[in-house]
Write a protein that binds this DNA or RNA. Structure first.
Length: 480
RNA sequence: CGGGGCGUGGCUCAGCCUGGUAGAGCACCGCGUUUGGGACGCGGGGGUCGUGGGUUCAAAUCCCUCCGCCCCGACCA
C-alpha cells in the first residue's frame, strides 16, 4: 500500500530520499545553522549501532580510542601543500574568542591529520614506539555549498583512524587491513551493502595522501557512493610535522602514516541501498528495534488479556532480540503498522484476541511490505522463529543488493558504450588515460572514475578512451 | 557561486494580481464512540503573515534591503 507521504522512487529519487529521512524521523535541517542537520533519536540510534560494530572491529585490529581538540591552529593546516589546497575552500575559522581577536586563528577541524601529526612528532622517539595505532570518534566541519542530509552536510560525525609505522610496507598493510577487515566487512556483513574495494586515481585521492583506497557502493538509482576511505599517507605528513623515529641502526627516519574514516554518510548509503516506497528498510543487525509488537483489542477486558499474552510471549526475548511493545492506546493498529513500516523496523508481531484464543501471532516482515509479508505462526517456538527470520532477512537484503548491482553493471568496450552505461550504473572499462582525460570524460558524461578495483581481470584489453593496450580496469559512474 | 522557485498556526497550503486588519486540511487538547492495514462525532487552543525599511488613512497583499529554504548547473566524506 503506497504511502502518500513518500514520493515514489520512480517519480523523483531525490525527493524520495528526503521523504524517507523526514518520515522515518532520522534527521531534519538545523535551519538556524547553515548546512547542518539535527540527527534525531531514530537516526542517531542507527549511528550508535554502526559505531558499536565498527568500534569492535577497530579495537579488534589493535587500535585504541583517543580524542584531539576540535580547533586546530590555522598554521598547521598550511603545512602540507596538497592538504592546504584540498581543504582551504571548505574550512571554517575562529578568529575571535574571549572578546578579543586571536593572535592566530583556529580552524574548526575538517579532518585531524595535522594536529595529530603535531603530537605524534612529540610522542614518537624510537622504533619501539611503533606502530602507533589510534582512532577518534568526533564531529568535523567542511563548509559545503550544497547539502543533503547525511550525504553531504557541513558538520558530520565520523571516526578517523591515524597510525604511524616504521616502514612503507607496514603502513600499506595497515591501510589494506582497515579497508578489508573493518570497512568492507562491516558494510557487507552488518549493513548488508555490497561494496567494491579499490584504489582511487590521482585525481580522486585524499589531499596529501600517497594512495587512497575506498569502498564504493551502488545506490538504487545506479549512482556510486563512496562509503569509506583508507589512506596511505606515505611520509608526506611525517615530513610536514617532523614525525621521526630512531631505528635499530641508530638512524633517524621519517615515519609512514595512515588515516582512514567512515562517517554518518553511511546512513545515507543504508537508506539508498535497501529502502522502498513504503519507507525505511533496516537490516536486522543495524536496526535499533528489530521487532515491534502491536497489541490489538476492542474492549478493556480484551486489552488486559492481550497485554498479558504479550508479556508472556516477549518474556524469552530478553537479551536475544531488540524489541519494543507499542501499547499506545490512542492510535489504531492500522496506523501503527504504517508508522513502523515507515521507520523500517524489520519485524512486526501482532497479537489480538484471536491469537490469544488460538495460541498464534501474526508476523509481518519489512522486506516484503504490506500484507504480502504477513503470516500467522504459533506462539510456541516464536523466539527461534524470529531470530531465524531476522537472519534470513539480513542475508536476503545483501543478496538483493548484490543482484541489483550486477544488473546495473557492465563492461564497456568503447566510449559510446561508456556514455550509455553511466546513465544506468557502473561501467567497467580498461583504462590507460591521464587525469586530464579523466577530466574530459567527467565534463562530457558527469561520470568519474570511482576506483581501480583491487580485483583485476587476467587478460589485458584496450583503453576505452586512448585505445592503448592495458591490464588495468576501472569503474566509471556518476557519484554522490 | 550562477540560473529558477518559495518563505502565512507544528506541517502542507489558500489568500497577494485588484491594499480594508487572516482561512482550510492535517496535527494538537477535552469528551464520547471506535480499534486484525493510516477511525469518527462534538467542543477547544494556537499565527508579531521570514527580517528591516519605504509608500499609504490603511500592507500578508505594492516597492527596496537583508536572511533562510528548495530545485537545476560548477566543487566535495
Amino acid at each position: 500500500m503506497p504511502k502518500d507521504v513518500i514520493t515514489p522512487r520512480a517519480t523523483d529519487y531525490n525527493q524520495w530520499y528526503l521523504d524517507i529521512v523526514r518520515e522515518a524521523d532520522l534527521a531534519e535541517s538545523a535551519e538556524v545553522v547553515r548546512g547542518c542537520i539535527v540527527v534525531k533519536a531514530t537516526g542517531w540510534g542507527i549511528w550508535e549501532m554502526m559505531q558499536r560494530e565498527l568500534d569492535d572491529r577497530i579495537k579488534a585490529t589493535g587500535h585504541a580510542n583517543v580524542q584531539f581538540p576540535l580547533l586546530i591552529p590555522k598554521s598547521f593546516i598550511m603545512k602540507e601543500a596538497e592538504h592546504v589546497e584540498g581543504f582551504a575552500p571548505e574550512v571554517a575559522e575562529v578568529t575571535r574568542a574571549g572578546g578579543e581577536e586571536l593572535a592566530e586563528p583556529y580552524v574548526v577541524r575538517p579532518t585531524s591529520e595535522t594536529i595529530i601529526g603535531h603530537f605524534y612528532s612529540r610522542w614518537i622517539r624510537s622504533y619501539r614506539d611503533l606502530p602507533l595505532l589510534y582512532n577518534q570518534w568526533c564531529n568535523v566541519m567542511r563548509w559545503e555549498l550544497r547539502t543533503r542530509p547525511f550525504l553531504r552536510t557541513s558538520e558530520f560525525w565520523w571516526q578517523e583512524g591515524h597510525t604511524a609505522h616504521a616502514t612503507e610496507a607496514e603502513a600499506e598493510a595497515e591501510t589494506l587491513k582497515i579497508l578489508h577487515d573493518v570497512y568492507a566487512d562491516f558494510a557487507e556483513q552488518v549493513m548488508a551493502v555490497p561494496v567494491i574495494r579499490g584504489l582511487k586515481t590521482e585525481k580522486e585521492k585524499f589531499p596529501g595522501a600517497l594512495r587512497s583506497y575506498c569502498i564504493e557502493a551502488m545506490m538504487q538509482d545506479g549512482r556510486a557512493l563512496q562509503a569509506g576511505t583508507s589512506h596511505n599517507l606515505g611520509q608526506n605528513f611525517a615530513r610536514a610535522f617532523d614525525i621521526t623515529y630512531t631505528d635499530q641502526n641508530n638512524t633517524v627516519q621519517h615515519c609512514w602514516t595512515t588515516s582512514w574514516g567512515v562517517s554518518t554518510r553511511l546512513i545515507g548509503a543504508l537508506i539508498m541501498t535497501h529502502s522502498d516506497d513504503e519507507g525505511l528498510v533496516l537490516p536486522p543487525r543495524l536496526a535499533p528495534t528489530q521487532v515491534v509488537v502491536v497489541p490489538i483489542y476492542k474492549s478493556p477486558e480484551e486489552r488486559a488479556q492481550v497485554l498479558e499474552a504479550v508479556a508472556r510471549i516477549t518474556g524469552p526475548w530478553h537479551g536475544r532480540l531488540r524489541y519494543r511493545i507499542d501499547d499506545r492506546d490512542n492510535l489504531t493498529p492500522g496506523f501503527k503498522f504504517n508508522e513502523w513500516e515507515l521507520k523500517g523496523v524489520p519485524l512486526r508481531v501482532e497479537v489480538g484476541p484471536k491469537d490469544v484464543e488460538k495460541g498464534s501471532v501474526a508476523v509481518a516482515r519489512r522486506d516484503l511490505p504490506g500484507r504480502a509479508g504477513k503470516r500467522f505462526v504459533p506462539q510456541a517456538g516464536l523466539s527461534e522463529h524470529l531470530v531465524a527470520l531476522l537472519d534470513e532477512m539480513q542475508g536476503g537484503l545483501f543478496q538483493r543488493a548484490l543482484q541489483f548491482r550486477a544488473e546495473r553493471s557492465a563492461v564497456v568496450g568503447n566510449y559510446a558504450e561508456l556514455q550509455q552505461q553511466v546513465e544506468r550504473g557502473f561501467a567497467w572499462a580498461y583504462w590507460d588515460g591521464s587525469s586530464e582525460d579523466e577530466r574530459h570524460i567527467q565534463e562530457q558524461t558527469r561520470a568519474t572514475i570511482r576506483c581501480i578495483p583491487l580485483d583485476q581481470p587476467e587478460a589485458p584489453g584496450r583503453c576505452v578512451y586512448t585505445g592503448r593496450e592495458t591490464r588495468q580496469q576501472v569503474i566509471f559512474a556518476r557519484a554522490y
